[in-house]
Amino acid sequence: MEENTIRQTDEIEIDLWEICLVLIHNLALIVSVGIMVALGAFLVTQIFGVPKYESTTKIYILNKQENNAVTYSDIQLGTQLTKDYAELIQSRFVLEEVVQGMGLDLSYDEMKKKVSVTTPTDTRILAITVTDTDPVMAMQLANAIREAAAVHIMNVMDIQAVNVSETANMPMDKAGPSVLKNTLIGGVLGVFLMIAIVLVRFLMDDTVKTPEDVEKYLQLSTLAVIPLNEGETDAKKKKKKVKRS
């Protein structure tokens, strides 16, 4: 039992070493394919990638009764209700009102994909971010959504006011697609794909190439090695002799 275990362990180590040698032998090919795929991803992103811009506006909501001071319970309740406010901002009522008010040819689902609402940790501030291919349109949509959402939140939640913490900005730099990110992803995918191809070809190849393979797989010792093409070998020797003379 111990001898069998040792043999199995040795075979596994040899196989892993062979795999490493195969990868090292094909390292230039793997790196070349990775560079080519990365270059392709760079060109596709640079030529066909549609730039997108993000504009963000922020609102501050505090639930309190009129003529009363702000208490800790008001702050705690406002924090708990931020998820409800986020749902109201992305509701069909608000987004369709913005679409109709701005005369846009967009459905509710298309509009909703452009809008995202986030809440910084332990705050009552809601950030409304709109993504669009036109930076001016992104800013206008963000402000319009904020105004429509403020009215809708006050009516539904029965609160006094929704304060504007930050108006939407004019985005100057595009938010995506990232050329660097896509290029790196393309390069990594190309490398892993080529590694997979090399390993599959190696594992599927069961031909015997060397005397060591005969001893390993057939458990037979080799007495001699015969060239596959003796005529070609003799021709090479004759050429060498002619050159020397």
Rank of each mutant, 00 (worst) to 15 (best):
E147V: 07
A150G: 04
F192D: 08
L189Y: 04
Q160D: 13
Q160L: 13
K181Y: 10
S178Y: 06
M172H: 07
A161W: 03
H152W: 04
S178I: 02
N163D: 12
I153V: 14
S178R: 08
T167Q: 15
M157D: 14
D158I: 09
V164R: 06
V164I: 15
G190Y: 06
L184R: 04
M154Q: 10
E147A: 09
D158Y: 07
I159E: 08
F192H: 05
I195H: 06
N169Q: 08
P171A: 09
D158L: 10
T167Y: 13
M194N: 05
E166L: 01
L189R: 02
L184Q: 08
G176N: 05
N182V: 02
I195C: 12
L184C: 09
P177S: 12
G186C: 11
P177D: 15
N163C: 05
T167L: 13
H152T: 06
N155F: 02
D173R: 13
A196R: 05
K181R: 13
A175H: 06
A175G: 06
A196Y: 05
L193S: 14
L193G: 13
G186A: 10
G176I: 05
M154G: 00
M154C: 08
A161Q: 11
Q160T: 11
S178N: 13
P177W: 13
I159Q: 09
I153Y: 00
I159R: 07
A148T: 08
H152L: 06
Q160N: 12
G186L: 08
E147F: 07
D158N: 15
K174A: 11
A175V: 04
A175F: 09
G187F: 03
G176E: 10
L189H: 04
S165R: 05
A148F: 14
L189C: 13
L189W: 04
I185K: 05
V162C: 11
P171T: 05
V164Q: 12
H152I: 02
A168I: 00
I153R: 03
V179R: 12
M172V: 03
A149G: 00
M154K: 09
M170T: 03
V191L: 13
L180E: 14
N163Q: 15
L189V: 15
N163L: 11
K174C: 02
S178M: 07
H152M: 12
A148P: 02
A168Q: 01
K181S: 10
L184A: 15
G187D: 08
M157V: 06
M157T: 03
N169R: 00
A168W: 01
A196C: 11
V151D: 13
A148N: 14
L189N: 05
F192K: 04
N169W: 00
M172N: 10
V191I: 11
A168L: 02
Q160P: 01
